[in-house]
Write a protein that binds this DNA or RNA. Sequence first.
DNA 1: GAATCGTGGCA
DNA 2: TTGCCAAGATT
Length: 350
Amino acid sequence: MNISEILTEWYEIHKRNLPWRGIENPYFIWISEIILQQTRVSQGWNYYEKFISRFPDISALANASEDEVLLLWQGLGYYSRARNLHHTAKHILKYFNGIFPNRYETLIKLKGIGEYTAAAILSFAFKKPFPVVDGNVNRVISRFFGVTEPVDLPDVRKKIYILAKNILNEKKPDIHNQAIMEFGALQCVPQNPDCANCPLQSGCVAFSKNCVEKIPAKKPKKEVENRYFHYFFVKQNEKTFIRKRQESDIWRNLYEFPLLETEKNLSETEIFDSQEFKKLFPDFSKFTILNISQIIEHQLTHQKIFTRFYEISLSQNFANSYFFENFKNIDFAEISDFAVPKLIENYLKN
DNA sequence: GAATCGTGGCA
DNA sequence: TTGCCAAGATT
């Protein structure tokens, strides 16, 4: 048996039963692939169910507002995926009459669809012979063929793509692709793989050279940057204030409370004394501190955010024009209608 | 082409 | 506690 046959045989025995498994509708395939980018199955599962339930077809998604799409995406992370998903749904409806493209050259131009996702849609939905190379495939191939260079280097990626293409079963690209990905996810796992019971053991270069744990190699990682946030949960009557993040930064197009960001981790006193604070709240007499939280640490891939939440109450006659021009004034109960970062969602729970 | 974009689970 | 990294794409 060749490697594809071994993987397929293994797959038929060990495959998980997943909501998108066996689906051929390219729209559903697309939704599942975007949700699962850099995301574990267990984390994406419920989001997939929510999405296809609320947006059963491409026009339902295209006709929704971006805010609603982001709200459904809230908590899943990498929010550009949701923005691109929505943008591309509108594009397909407008320019392709709602018909999902089935050519690589067309798919690859759509926002949010890269080489992997295009190949996944083409093979799963249209049975076309394109090899998928995701993190799982990367690991299986680099170990089996003994690729010791860092797999995140462009030249090494090309090399692995060619290897993936060479072993592809062109007659059953859908089964082959799902088999090799599932194999990476369940058998050829990153840490402590069970090589003693692996059907690819005899041909695996990494196993024969006893370097399975060293492959796939990765480039050294950049140090994470520390950031210091000070959020103001402002209460005035039964209302509060939020704004939409529109900068090219984390959490783009999500909502948040009035925010001061500082270079260092300033104390409460230092915040209250700062010019930036006085710009937000010029009249301290109309201002009551209800609660100040501990410093909450929120870890992102390249950043660690240290945040303190200030719960404050404004008297009725506080009417700073700056505030009302820059923030949306909403009822407390309305907060759940807006997509917010997990950091704020967690705070609001308590 | 390197840097950037979230969150959660696990060892 | 910390690091790893997961059905990657964009700029």
